[in-house]
Design a protein around this nucleic acid. Sequence first.
DNA 1: TATCAGAGAATTGTTGACAATATACCGTCA
DNA 2: TGACGGTATATTGTCAACAATTCTCTGATA
Lengths: 239, 239
Amino acid sequence: MLAKSSARNPAAKKAIEILREHSLSSLAQQELERRIMSGEIAGGAKLNETAIAGALGVSRGPVREAFRALSQAGLVRVEKNRGVFVREVSLGEADEFYEVRAALEGLIGRLAARRITENEVGRLRDIVKRMHGIKVGTNSNVGNYFALNVEFHDLLARAARNGALLANYRGTVAQLDLYRRAAITQSLENVPISTREHEAITEAVAARDEARAEALLTEHVLLSCSRLHTVLDHNAAAR
Amino acid sequence: MLAKSSARNPAAKKAIEILREHSLSSLAQQELERRIMSGEIAGGAKLNETAIAGALGVSRGPVREAFRALSQAGLVRVEKNRGVFVREVSLGEADEFYEVRAALEGLIGRLAARRITENEVGRLRDIVKRMHGIKVGTNSNVGNYFALNVEFHDLLARAARNGALLANYRGTVAQLDLYRRAAITQSLENVPISTREHEAITEAVAARDEARAEALLTEHVLLSCSRLHTVLDHNAAAR
DNA sequence: TATCAGAGAATTGTTGACAATATACCGTCA
DNA sequence: TGACGGTATATTGTCAACAATTCTCTGATA
């Protein structure tokens, strides 16, 4: 029965092909990471082994292995005999991550200015152009801007052509986003300001100005952190 | 039988106490990390699940979970259906890690200069004093200097009082040490130079000079990388 | 001699079962 | 009514068995 479906059904064939090179635990890890980062699973939520195993159609073993990897990545917290919980990042911890990220982005700016290709510069400019297109008024575009922001910085991180730096950057940003997702503190008024910063960064990198790219990127991250606090204070005052 | 031994044997009692808060997988992870970082298990070596489980007195489950965490930490490499191997870091990758570390240490220097206590400054000075005591001639003291170096930088990283930075620093250094351990490239002649750099860093931090501490630490890491290359080139030429 | 095929052994991937711990529920008592 | 205790349930931690894949060794062949 299974053989028959795999022989005829292209989807089943593809699934088997994927399983040939990926273990169930790595697939479970990917899927759980996606659900956590998308906010599908809220911060602090408990991850039930049996329930997740059932939902993914696997046994508890691979799920537990995925948990250990996610714990090492700082995305979940493991309490012995009690369970696994989506990590909650406090504002204080977010500030710590912002500092680390600022240092990493500085290096990214320096290296990207040195190694970025013309094609990549073009893609950066395209992202900035799309950022300019965000209309200040429609609230749904906040998420749109957030996605463009992620795309911009990840492209820059890849342009630095340092694997260790890229992995470190992504891991740090993922943990920082655990906070940013919980506290939806994107303010529309900051979009034009932030977009101008991205534009300046793009031109510094395009001009191969390493020192300026480093300084602008470090400053950009620290300013983002400041803007976050401003929005939070404003919200707190209004409440 | 087991109850009897645990009731009388203090060691067994302690072991049970440890098991009350630590799972076998986390203990396996710790132990494997220790063996990898100490060089007890060589780079590239295959980690046999059954053998390790037997050596640690547990079943394969916890060992596999430990593998996943170590893989996420970048200390081992998992190949599906083939096994787990201690990660081998190339010279090129080591250069990448040095760049990342330089950025992190810069931030550590800045924050440590801001937040270090008098007690911690005293301990830094003590470490430097012990570094000065290393006799250039006895080869066994290279490992001694290496330990002091680790102690110095980890103390400084803790003095920065940024948990995210500390975790990131330790993870990065662990991966970098995978290379440094494989290529035992410590040269005696560099010890006095490196010691002077540590001394200058200590005094910059003690003087609360954030900019200087940041600059000196960044430079120190990049110089260490340069010295590594010099030693390697020298060894290659001599061969 | 070198290469290839194949049987056997070893190793990994996954699962289900059992034991230990924690949680939830419910009745009792103050 | 609310706090406490005990039992039942649910969940986690660990293990052993089975299936699938890879590795190894032997022998045959060019």
